[in-house]
Every structure is written in C-alpha cells, then in structure tokens.
C-alpha cells in the first residue's frame, strides 16, 4: 500500500493539489524569511564583532519607517494567506449539492463504514473516482479523527453528534486511512485503507456486495421492530409527527424555534426526543438511547430520508419546498409506502 513519496502523500483528490500548492508557497515563504533573518543576523555578528574590549555600539534608537515597513508587509502577506487558506477551507467545509453519502462510525479501535446500498466494511472503504463522497460520521465512545492523507482531509469524529467531511478522489488506487485523534491504547492500530476504484469497478463491487438490502430498507425493518410506526403513522392520526417528506424541511418546535430536519436532528430525536419537540405534539416519545446502535440510528435516518413523495393513504401534494439538501445517492431507495 506504499503510495506517494517520502515527502508527500499521493495526490489523489481534488483538494490535494490545492493544499499542496499552499504548502509549497508557505515552505518557500518560511525558507525566504528564515534565511533572510538568520543570514542578516550572522552577517551582523561577523561584521560588527567586537574588535576593541571597551567599544560600544552605535547610538541608534529606532526608526519609524522601518517599523512601519516590517509591520505592514508581513500583515499584508498574512492577510493574503488568510484569504487563500479560507478559500480552500470553504471548499472543504461545504460539500457540493450532489454527493454519494457514506456513514462512518468510529469506536475503539476500528472504523465501520456503511454504504447506502447496505454494504458494510471495517477498516476498509471503497469509493469511486470522480464522485463527491460525503462522510457522515460519529463515534461510539471517545473522540476519533478520520484522516485520509492522500486526500489532504481529516475531521474529528465525535460521540453524540454527526460531523461531516467530503472529498472527490481523482486517482484509482489504495491509500492509507488513519485515526488522527488520540483515542487510547491501540490508537496507532486504528488504521485502514481507502480503495479508490474506477466507476465500472465500483459498480461491480457494489453489486457483488449488496446482499443485505439498502440502508433504508434495513431502517424500515428496524422502524417496525421498534414499533416506531405505531405513533409515526403516515396518515397524521398518530401521536407523533408524520415523517413522510419531512427530511430537509424546516419544522416549528414547541419552544417557538425552528429547526431544519437533517441527519443530526433525526438522530437527536431518536436518542433524546424531549430535547426538541415538534409544535403541536406532546413529549411522550421514550428515548431509544441504548436500545438502538449508532448504525441502527443511521439506518433509521436513511429510512426517514427515503420517505419522499405522496404517501399511500394520504393525499399529500407533491412537495413544493424543493429537494432536500445533499440528497442524492444513486441508490436512493424508491419512496416506501406503508
């Protein structure tokens, strides 16, 4: 799995080249100023070395022009660097609208990945070339950090919430992935590999691995096993809100605030339902903390996300509020009716 050189990891994502450019510029800047200052310092040491035991230095107290010059020029340089680096950061922090979503769960000391079509992997992640891949990540225990050196991206994986990261691989190959946030005894063993495949190979891999049904279908089964469907009915007669077409909407809360229904809100509503109760409903839902695993929560989320379009027995008008954000996967399950 050797990739890259001893100086650089492989350049295998759209981010990688941009990050390397900034890095090389800063290496040049650092070399320039270090050599400039150190050379001047040593040259002055030599040129103005003490020749007479009792001699003293020239009486120079300062100079405003110099002070302004060497304050303003560095200031302009760092502000330029700020803009440059912020552009890269914004590209990293804001995934494109169309992404292939993959869920990741970190736990001491392994990585678990779940694909939309239901493939599960441990310490190995398969992704296609040329597609924007968004990781939706959480941890079962302590902090972790998913780091792909070849893509020049990493993000902390935090228990109790979802964090996101995206990348677009540009080159097929196998590259290392690491846990980059110290997580205990076998931290340095919490490693694996990302396998970047050509689209056709990726499709073949997907087809070969999809034995268990999609995440959404697994979520549907869990939804029934946990008896969620007794309250969350599609016909607005249940004790809980209708979940059809809810993903991506803004809903009003009892507290008077509004919240966008995204992965984080669905997760919170399953595990701590009393935290943000929808307006018009009683906080009667029990917590499912401890009853459903992080993977199970992810399946439920995908199920809720799949509930798009009119329901079977209620004439809901086709949604006019536009598509849900980041909704897209090729394996998007068809609207499930129940």
């Amino acid at each position: 799995m050797r990739s890259g050189t001893v100086f650089f990891p492989e350049v295998a994502s759209t981010m990688a080249a941009r990050v390397d450019q900034l890095y090389l510029f800063l290496v040049g800047l650092t070399a320039f100023f270090t050599i400039l200052i150190f050379t001047m310092f040593v040259v002055f040491m030599v040129k103005y070395r003490r020749r007479e035991p009792n001699s003293i230095g020239a009486r120079i107290h300062g100079g405003m022009i110099l002070e302004v010059t060497w304050s303003v020029i560095p200031l302009l340089i760092v502000l330029g660097l700020f803009v440059w680096s912020a552009q890269i950061f914004f590209a990293f922090a804001r995934p494109p609208a169309e992404t292939l979503n993959v869920y990741a769960v970190g736990k001491q000391w392994m990585w678990k990945f779940q694909h939309m079509d239901g493939q599960r992997e441990i310490n190995e992640l398969h992704v296609p070339v040329g597609r924007s891949v968004k990781m939706i990540m959480t941890s079962e225990d302590v902090l972790h950090d998913l780091f792909f050196p070849a893509f020049r991206v990493k993000a902390d994986v935090i228990p109790g919430r979802y964090t996101h990261m995206w990348f677009e691989a540009t080159k097929a190959g196998t590259y290392p992935l690491y846990c980059a946030e110290y997580c205990g005894t076998k931290h340095s063993g919490m490693i694996g590999q990302v396998v970047v495949m050509e689209p056709d190979d990726y499709q073949a891999w997907l087809t070969a691995g999809a034995q268990e049904g999609s995440l959404a279908s697994a979520g549907e089964k869990l939804f029934q096993d946990l008896a969620c469907n007794t309250c969350h009915r599609p016909d607005a007669q249940g004790r809980g809100p209708v979940l059809h077409n809810i993903y991506g909407k803004t809903v009003a809360l009892q507290s008077g605030e509004n919240v966008v229904v995204d992965e984080a809100y669905i997760r919170e509503s399953i595990l701590r339902p009393a935290a943000k109760v929808s307006a018009g409903f009683q906080p009667t839902m029990p917590s499912f903390q401890g009853l459903v695993s992080e993977e199970g929560v992810m399946e439920l989320i995908e199920y809720v996300k799949s509930l798009q379009g009119p329901t079977a027995n209620q004439a809901v008008r086709p949604t006019t509020s536009g598509p849900a954000p980041n909704e897209n996967t090729p394996s998007q399950a068809p609207p499930t009716r129940n």
Binding site: V19, A86, I88, F89, F92, F147, P149, K154, A180, E181
Partner: peptide, 10 residues
C-alpha cells in the same frame, strides 16, 4: 491557514 491545517493538524 485553515485549508492547510486540515491536513497537517494532529
């Protein structure tokens, strides 16, 4: 530099 820190932090 945020965009670079993502890669080099940790």
């Amino acid at each position: 530099a945020m965009g670079l820190d993502i890669h080099v932090t940790d």
